[in-house]
Design a protein around this nucleic acid. Structure first.
Lengths: 165, 165
DNA sequence: GTTAAGCTGTATTGTGTATACATCTTCAAC
DNA sequence: GTTGAAGATGTATACACAATACAGCTTAAC
């Protein structure tokens, strides 16, 4: 039972942006802070923007910020919208399900119940709950990358830069 | 958010065996009933045997049966023991977690809570709950395979036999 | 001793996620 | 009005891991 790192990154981005709401945050800086792929993060951010969680500004001096108050960003909704494979097991997907016992199977309902319970927890929390430790987060995110001496001035050349590993 | 089909098959095997508790069931027949890979199923069964859910008998006339009463086979436990990647996101695994904000992150706790809620539902049910529709299950499982005219007498030659597709 | 069953280990395939690459668009600063 | 820093977008590749196949062994009934 796993969530995609896509969802994971989505939540982390929201935490970052929420913790730095005094200014615009760029994809590059977030990728550097978490030491993850900038290219992948770009797609995550794009998705968050599509969903109306962040507003992005192109061009020099651009970046992103939250499009709503943290209180209004529900975590269950975020996960549901970043996790596209929403079926726990094969038989949840009517398209591909070929399980013979489906018509008499009580397992499906039970798993559905379990999944509901999972999301109910997330549904009852918002981004604001993740920001209660905000000062600590800001400090942790500001630390220099492991192994990196000083953030190289960067620019487009650094785009392909990868995890220190 | 998905379970592995390994877990899925594990649950299905238990349902099959539980529904046919009047005799031993063979891996071959179960694979045929669900139209899934016999080889893969063999490993699933092996795992179920290791966990003490089924007893297997080698040799001619062999097969498997439940090692406990359905009531004593807890579904949460089954899933936990067949699903080996038990961490929802990277930071749940102390070995590989490199997330910088972990020390100040409240997300992890929240996701843990959600996962607990998921398993709590499964924990409160046993295999017996999946067998309430037993007569129906037996009937569904006895139907001829899609596309198959008559079950070929089988034997080792048929071992590699694959889904009708 | 033959056959039907499970056991075990290894190799291969396949799928989906994650990542990289390349190029385009936008917009602010100069 | 040009430049450069940012996001947008589409495609291609890499990688992990689940799923499957294959090969040979062991066990037990007949």
């Amino acid at each position: 039972m796993r969530l995609t790192t896509f969802s994971d990154y989505g939540l982390r981005v929201l935490m970052y942006v929420g913790a730095h709401d005094d200014r615009l945050a760029t994809i590059g800086e977030i990728a550097q802070a978490y030491d993850i792929s900038e290219n992948h993060l770009m797609k995550v951010v794009h998705r968050l923007a599509q969903c109306g969680y962040v507003e992005t500004a192109r061009g020099r001096g651009g970046g992103m910020r939250l499009a709503r108050a943290p209180r209004d960003i529900n975590l269950g909704e975020v996960v549901r919208r970043t996790e596209d494979r929403s079926h726990l097991v094969e038989c949840f997907d009517p398209q591909t399900s070929g399980c013979r016992i489906a018509p008499g199977c009580t397992l499906k309902g039970l798993l559905g119940e379990a999944m509901d319970a999972f999301f109910q927890v997330l549904d009852s929390h918002s981004l604001a709950d993740l920001l209660v430790t905000r000062p600590k987060l800001v400090k942790l995110l500001a630390l220099p990358r492991r192994g990196a001496t000083a953030a190289p001035s960067g620019g487009r050349a650094a785009r392909g830069r990868q995890r220190a590993g």
